[in-house]
């Protein structure tokens, strides 16, 4: 198989940038939400839970279209952000990151939530009897014990973000160098005559990235178990 061309590199690097930013921005929200869902009972909890999982079951093109309506230049939020803060999502790589972040959010939150649920609450009580205020309990007991789950969620979210296609192409289109990720590059290549070799190279790279992420997530999950058993 021949060399990876500069155009392909552009798509690969863009995909990585989009997925990294999407994951890093989504992580604090993911941790906060995972904690809320795992540890608090409040009105509308099942509604929020359903809303988070919606991108998983909704056709991605619907999510992308809704993003376009909301965050497009004439959208309610998008117009405000563009006019007052100068932040534009439509047809920019930032929009791709937003689409990927939302599409990968359910996968990112789930392992975080499970790992927080698995923590023995009696340990948090013990911390409190030793003088730790609630936020210190979170920082010194809950978060460290949940860390492998948090990392697993980040890895899974990253893997999903790097492969996202439907919502991204609907929301920010398929502009080489700006919004053309690996997925949309493959899509373009297989519609081009003689694009097979290039598409094949990107397919292999996708498989490697996805497999790597799954193996990493599995490894973190095993670390989590060991950590909870104090080894």
């Amino acid at each position: 198989m021949s060399e990876i061309t500069p155009a392909e590199w552009t798509a690969i690097l863009l995909s990585l940038r989009v997925a990294v930013i999407a994951t890093l921005v989504a992580t604090p929200f993911g941790i906060a939400l995972a904690w809320l869902l795992a540890r608090r009972d409040f009105w509308g909890k099942s509604m929020i839970d359903a809303l988070v999982h919606l991108p998983l079951v909704l056709p991605p093109v619907v999510t992308g279209y809704l993003l376009l309506l909301t965050f497009g230049r004439r959208g309610l939020v998008g117009g405000f952000l563009a006019d007052y803060l100068g932040i534009v999502f439509a047809f920019r790589w930032t929009g791709a990151a937003l689409a990927c972040g939302i599409m990968s959010f359910p996968l990112l939150v789930r392992p975080m939530r499970l790992s927080i649920e698995a923590i023995d609450r009696r340990l948090e009580q013990a911390a409190e009897t030793l003088g730790a205020a609630p936020w210190k309990v979170f920082a010194t007991v809950t978060l460290p014990l949940a860390l492998p789950g948090v990392l697993a969620g980040m890895v899974l979210g990253f893997a999903k973000a790097i492969g996202e296609f439907g919502a991204t192409i609907t929301f920010v289109s398929n502009i080489p160098g700006e919004t053309q990720t690996i997925s949309s590059a493959i899509y373009s290549l297989i519609q081009t005559p003689d694009g097979d070799a290039a598409a094949g190279r990107l397919v292999i790279i996708s498989i490697i990235l996805a497999l790597g992420a799954l193996i990493a997530a599995e490894w973190f999950a095993r670390r989590a178990t060991a950590r909870l058993h104090g080894n």
């Binding site: 009696r122 340990l123 009580q125 013990a126 911390a127 009897t129 460290p144 909870l228 104090g230």
Partner: peptide, 11 residues
């Protein structure tokens, strides 16, 4: 508070 199950922090 010393609990029946020591509740040491495993990490």
């Amino acid at each position: 508070y010393v609990f029946q199950d020591a509740r040491l922090f495993p990490h």
